[in-house]
Structures are given as C-alpha cells and as structure tokens.
Nucleic acid binder design. Sequence first.
DNA 1: CCTACCGATCGGTAGG
DNA 2: CCTACCGATCGGTAGG
Lengths: 198, 198
Amino acid sequence: MITSRKNRKQELEQKAASLFRERGYTATSMRDLAQHLGIEAASLYSHIKSKEELLHKTCFDLAESLFQSLDALNTLDLTASDMLKRALKNHLEIISADSDRAMVFLHEYRHLSEPGRTLFLKMRKDYEQRFMLIIRSGIRNGEFRKVDEKITTLALLSAVNSTPVWLKKGKDMQPGALADLLSDILINGISSAVLERT
Amino acid sequence: MITSRKNRKQELEQKAASLFRERGYTATSMRDLAQHLGIEAASLYSHIKSKEELLHKTCFDLAESLFQSLDALNTLDLTASDMLKRALKNHLEIISADSDRAMVFLHEYRHLSEPGRTLFLKMRKDYEQRFMLIIRSGIRNGEFRKVDEKITTLALLSAVNSTPVWLKKGKDMQPGALADLLSDILINGISSAVLERT
DNA sequence: CCTACCGATCGGTAGG
DNA sequence: CCTACCGATCGGTAGG
C-alpha cells in the first residue's frame, strides 16, 4: 500500500532525526537506526539511497519551511518592530514543531558533502540577511537605535535557535509566548531605567 | 627535554581542538590528527592515553577557566548591571582567546563518556545558575524589569556563546568591545522609543 | 616515534 | 524486508 510505504519512510526520517540530534550524525550508525525501527540495517536501503540522503532531506526541507514563512510576511505592510516579531514567531513555531529536525538542521548540516554543504550555507546566509534587513529598516525609519545590524541579527537568531536545547518538550511555554518574550527583551531590554534615547 | 615534550603535547591538544571543532569529535580520526602533526597514528599514544582524553581535557580545562573568572568577581561590590557586564566580558574573553577549544567545549562535550558527561552537564548548569542569580538580584533591587530569569539567562548565554561561529579570527571587533555591545542590547534593547517602565 | 597488526564496526551491495 | 557478505576504516596495542 502506498500510504503504509509513505508512513514507513516518514517514520524512518523521524527516527533518524531523533538519533542524529541525540548522538550526532557521524556517531549514529545505520545499524542503530535499523534497530530502533526493528529491522535489519540492510533493509533501510529499500527506503533510502544513503545515510546522507536522510541528513540532506532534513536540512533542506526545514530551510524551505523557514523561507516560505518569511516570504508570506512580505505581502504585509508592517512596522519593522512588528515585522521582526512576526518573523521571529514564525521561525520559533517552525523549529519548535519538530525540534529534532531543527537541531539537525542547526548543527549537523556540516556533515553534508559538497556541493550540498556550500549550498546550504548560502541559503542560511540569505535567511540571516532577511532578518538583518528588517532590523536595518527599523534603524533607518527611527524605530530602532543605531545598533550594529549584523551582530544584533546573529545574536538574536542564536538565542532563538538555542531554545530547542533548553525548552523541555511539552513543558514550559508555547512558541508564540516565547517569541513575544524574546522580542520584548531584544526590543525593550531588561533595564527598568527610563532612558533618554535618539 | 621536558620543555619540548610539553610543547609537543600542547601542539597535539591544540590541533585536536582545531580538528574536533572543524569536523566534529566523532568524524575526526586519530589518523587525521596524526597526519596533521606529521607522525603516525600509533605515535599519538606516547603522549595521550586515548582519544577521549583530548576531549575531556579540553572540556574541563575550559570549564575551570570560566569558573575561576566568575569567582574573581565575587569579591567585588557591583550593581547587578555592572556585574553582568563584567561577567559577560570575562566569559567572552575566555572563549575568544581560544575559539577552537571553546567550540569543542560548547558542542562536542556530549561525546564524553560517563561519568564525565554527567559531571560536565552539572558544572554547566551551575555556571548558568550563577548568571541567573546576577539577573535575579538585578530584578530584586529594581535595576531590571521582571523578565523571566531563566529564559533571559539562557538566551543571553546562547547569543554570547555563538560568537565564535560568526566572529572572524582577528577581524571584526575585540571581545571587550563586543561584550559591551551585547550587554547594551540586552540591558537597553534596540528600541529608540522612550518607554515608561516600572 | 616507528612498523606491524588486532578485533570491531562502518556504510553499503547482491540476490532473493 | 531478509541473509550473507564486502572493502574500508576505526581506536588502540605490542614491541621495539
């Protein structure tokens, strides 16, 4: 049956992401993966071509999701501040929805062989650039102070991308609420002082 | 000669950190490492007991440096804001001074075998806790708003710890200046608006 | 620091 | 999805 084949392959990809996240891509053997699925290692190859195919698919599927959610915001006419909040919320929702895949995307991509690895890094840079442009527009229209665009962007994304590490599954807060909280800290800071600003 | 032996071992540790950072611990073979040093793989074992010893030493040496720099601040009587800035600056200086080791400390520790891994995680948690207490004291004495202590701490440390990834060696800015910049963004935010705060 | 070598494990294939 | 198997490579040791 077509559906059962699809489900089996999805199950395989999900379990692979889980193991790649937990032990790292290199330290996960195809025998580990097969054992977790209750089959022999050789049987994996009736579903996939290679171990790297699993890594490749995870990395590029997630990249596509992130770009699509960002594209969807382009039609909206928002302030830089609101745009940043929305982009952040989308980003956080995507990486929270499947944190195993997100962690593989974030940390295991470097085991991609060429030319995949270079392409991946190019896409990631483009994505960061899109965030940077939001911050830049906010600085230009006066919403934001003249902070360093690059450093602010990368610091922000790093903080957001680390949430799967310290956010317990199910517990803690919803991605939307967490995005609001992180946006608030970034935009307003943690100081209670009322400052004179330009 | 004692000194040349010491130098050789340090060279070995340095090169190992560099390779572990670049390819990951698991994907780095002892033959890779030996080749970069111009010797045979078997010869490595006259300097070290095992591959993991290299990982272990890197992780725990760096942890000790971080704790020591934090302890040195305890004798000072500072506001929470200044304490946070100082702690951040020390942290950033340590991880910037040897970014290869820092990246191994940050991302490869999970390949430590037990009980090392558990001990390491306990130390890291203690360290994060120390930062959290600084933020908490700032909230209690009114310097900071009532932000979520845990999330603020982890977001901050994640941002800081990601700097070796995007900070080009030699180029860009000094760790001290970068620490000031990140502290400023965290404490004051990026908004240009003058807000009423409590 | 070297040569010679070990058992274990790796990703993957052949053929059913 | 299985049995049977392959060449390559792994961390590490013996003995010098």
